[in-house]
Design a binder for these strands. Structure first.
Lengths: 300, 300
DNA sequence: CAACCGTTTTTTATGCATAAAAAACATATG
DNA sequence: CATATGTTTTTTATGCATAAAAAACGGTTG
């Protein structure tokens, strides 16, 4: 008897999205063609047809050949719960990051594949492939035939990460300044400036919104470098910060308020086409980010 | 019936290493203890015992409990052929790099897992895990449920690679200059200088030896940065250059001769503790390397 | 009794089967 | 006859079984 059954999270996720779509349409109207739905929801027709079948069984639609009549609006109970629609990889990433960032597990710990599979409720292959994929972030490493070892989010990790980040972002700032004034990135920068000022005015209550803004801002900066290795590295930064924002709540409001100001200084420097000013503002911001990161170290 | 049988390349590789070891010992002497062999050859006692068993069967040793008497020196036919001792990952990497660098396969090509498994004579899991592992180099990428796509060693890839390389190595040169004069890296630099001069004197015939020297030199430089992300990136550089040296034979002697001179200029700058001179020499070398790389592009 | 070997248990590596999903192909319909 | 649906084939995702290898355990021997 199988411990873990094969997941069909894609189908369930598409099913939920189709319910959302139906909600926007009045009863008595027809759903579009299978191919159109397939394009729109980014799934194969096979999946779409499985969804339509289920919708018909649930009497949400009446499906006969090319006619797909909406019978009733979906209710909350029609939806699959979010746990079922998440991909194995998402589940693993969240569980794993929570596990290692909680500090319950020590640096140098040997990671046991079958134990992880048991604890996280997924198969050993899923764990195995996740670990291989995840290893590119440098938080774990493996020696052949001996398995995986937790490197962990240590002080050195944070320092090395910050060093490279400073190297890359400084370059990105300089590349940004080289963009022609009609390049779309300048409009995007204006938009981000507005969003920053908006959030600044209501930061007391809404400081949690900063995390998304932060990611968008740095992603825009780095886009000027137009370099896949810099983008890849930003994925790592984003990962670390994502979970950092999620679990390290210390001084969060103050930190975010300060960071908004630092971002605005960089934006001002860029808009003034003032290389020196922008560079200094960037250095200030990254120095602050480095400090924050170091304060959140669990180990050493 | 299985298409592919499970490999035991580790055992075979250790067996060959044990034969090497026995060659250094005269007949009639005893091999050391199982644990000692295990430590020395970096394998578990289980593997060592399997090797000893095979050695006894082949009458190379007489094995009775703790007595392992050497009966005869190993012959060439005792050895497993190298194909059998290579790991699946090595096999895949070589075959895959040869395949994509040969230019027979176009950028954007969809990589079929089972086809690759068939062609390379390994299982689909092996291919799958290889692709995940290999994807960190950015030569392939995957979109969920749709499989892998060849990004390929394109002009942009080479340009972006070179950009980051210049960023990192310039930093490494500066970090190198900050090392205290009694740091071991200075002695290592002296040693490399000697090797470079030695090779320079016989470059006409032995220019193929440069590839190893090149890797060692850049690895030493980057070690000054003491940064895992910079080291990881160097792995990518090393991979590209390894196969580049292997298949791109155009002007190889001239290129290597020039590169030796460039390396020596960097070494001279470093030894003189002349930041400016070292930086310029490094920039020159990397500019030449960039040019070489771009000339070897298969696609675009 | 400490180092060593024989045996058992655990973990990792890897082939493979199969469900889920995508893609291709065939047929129908307006 | 172009576009849609119905059906089949192919490919990917993923659970799992098991051989290889490592690690642990326990008894032996000098």
């Amino acid at each position: 008897m199988p411990f873990v059954v094969k997941r069909n999270n894609r189908y369930k996720s598409i099913y939920n999205q189709t319910l959302d779509l139906i909600k926007t349409l009045p009863d008595g109207t027809e759903l579009s063609t299978e191919s159109a739905l397939s394009d729109r929801l980014n799934a194969s027709r096979t999946t779409i047809r499985a969804v339509l079948k289920h919708l018909a069984d649930e009497k949400v639609i009446d499906w006969r050949g090319r006619h797909k009549l909406i019978l009733r609006p979906p209710t909350d109970t029609d939806y699959f719960v979010s746990e079922e629609t998440r991909s194995t990889d998402e589940i693993l990433e969240t569980a794993f990051m929570q596990w290692i960032l909680s500090g319950d597990v020590n640096v140098g710990t040997h990671l046991n594949e079958s134990e992880m599979a048991r604890n996280f409720g997924v198969s050993t292959s899923a764990v195995r492939e996740f670990l291989i994929r995840f290893s590119r972030f440098g938080l774990i490493k493996k020696q052949p035939s001996t398995g995986w070892e937790l490197v962990g989010f240590t002080k050195n990790f944070a320092l090395e990460l910050s060093d490279v980040r400073e190297l890359f972002e400084t370059r990105s700032v300089h590349q940004f300044l080289k963009q022609p004034s009609d390049a779309p990135c300048w409009a995007a920068l204006d938009e981000l400036e507005t969003q920053h000022k908006d959030l600044q005015s209501r930061v007391e209550t809404d400081y949690l919104e900063f995390s998304t803004l932060d990611d968008n801002f740095h992603r825009l900066l780095n886009s000027a470098s137009d370099n896949r290795f810099i983008s890849d590295f930003h994925d790592l930064i984003a990962l670390i910060f994502h979970y950092h924002y999620r679990w390290n709540k210390q001084d969060e409001r103050e930190r975010n308020t300060a960071a908004i100001g630092q971002h605005l200084a960089i934006i001002a420097g860029l808009k003034a086409r003032d290389r020196n000013k922008a560079t200094v503002a960037c250095a200030n911001h990254l120095a602050a980010a480095r400090k924050t990161l170091l304060r959140s170290i669990v180990w050493d």
